[in-house]
């Protein structure tokens, strides 16, 4: 299937298209809008506390007089950057382990899959919480805390992808075109890179899209618990936690970041479903 056909399939799926548009706008807004806003993420305006939406503050201000729009977009930056970075780590680790295990087979395969099982046996967010706790994200500088979040979510998040890749490689390894490549004397590296890897791209893209939704939720949970991204970096989870003292009178403080979070997660899920249908028509979801 050509990229053009794939794109046509996705464009025909209205929900997936809407998700792409939403995510695209979110990325653009997170990247560029804060530059044009006159407020900082943590800038407190003592005379404009808890302002309702409108005027200079499109979404109002919070209990410390911080502009909510600025903070929500800053939170989007963090969420998206963490998601992309974690998925890079996940793809790197999952692909490496899955390729080696699936292609080599034998005792290396058994060993790697046992390690994967051990990690799979533990819920990833829980392990990330414990790892972050011991690595000491709470007392780190903000940049370090964001990096530790990425490390802990990446290191605990790769096993499902490794399993997926391994399964695919085991199946691909026995196909005729791999035999053909081997019989004309291609090296293992060449077979992996030119014959097996291209066939893995679609399933990995689908898996990574859906997983990114989970990563964004996990980052928000960690930051909500106070052990994720530290101040002054804004995060949707942190904003919701900050709002807990005032949400009874000002539900907006919770609802704005929560809506952004849920919409992003839903959009990624729909996009993942749409990509699956578009890239692999045989596995069409019911």
């Amino acid at each position: 299937m050509t990229p053009r056909e794939t794109w046509q399939r996705i464009a025909a799926n209205k929900i997936a298209l809407a998700s792409i548009i939403f995510l695209g706008l979110l990325i653009l807004a997170a990247a560029f809008v804060p530059m044009f806003l006159p407020f900082g993420y943590e800038q407190q305006l003592p005379d404009s506390r808890l302002l309702p939406p409108g005027g200079k503050h499109l979404l109002g201000t919070d209990d410390l007089g911080r502009d909510i729009l600025t903070r929500v977009l800053g939170g989007a930056r963090i969420s998206l950057m963490v998601a992309v970075s974690v998925e890079c780590v996940v793809v790197f680790l999952g692909l490496t382990v899955g390729l080696i295990a699936g292609y080599r087979g034998g005792w290396i395969d058994s060993l790697l899959m046992r390690i994967t099982d051990v990690l799979l046996a533990f819920p990833d967010v829980l392990l990330a919480i414990l790892l972050l706790g011991t690595l000491g994200a709470t007392s780190s500088r903000p940049e370090t805390s964001a990096m530790l979040v990425v490390v802990s979510l990446g290191v605990t998040g790769w096993p499902p992808l490794a399993r997926l890749v391994r399964g695919q490689v085991v199946a691909l390894r026995q196909r005729e075109f791999v035999d053909a490549a081997r019989s004309i004397g291609s090296s293992h590296g060449r077979i992996l890179l030119h014959h097996i890897l291209p066939n893995l791209v679609s399933p990995i893209i689908v898996a990574v899209t859906v997983d990114a939704a989970g990563v964004i939720l996990a980052e928000a949970t960690l930051s909500y618990l106070g052990i994720g991204v530290q101040r002054p970096m804004p995060s949707w989870g942190r904003m919701i936690n900050d709002a807990l003292d005032y949400y009874k009178s000002e539900p907006r403080l919770v609802i704005v970041p929560a809506t952004m979070l849920s919409l992003t997660v839903i959009a990624l899920n729909f996009l993942g479903d749409g990509l699956r249908d578009a890239l692999d028509p045989r596995k069409t979801r019911r």
């Binding site: 989870g237 539900p251 919770v254 997660v265």
Partner: peptide
């Protein structure tokens, strides 16, 4: 699935 626990709790 898309509503995190820490949003559902206050709401």
């Amino acid at each position: 699935v898309a509503t995190p626990t820490f949003v559902l709790a206050p709401v």
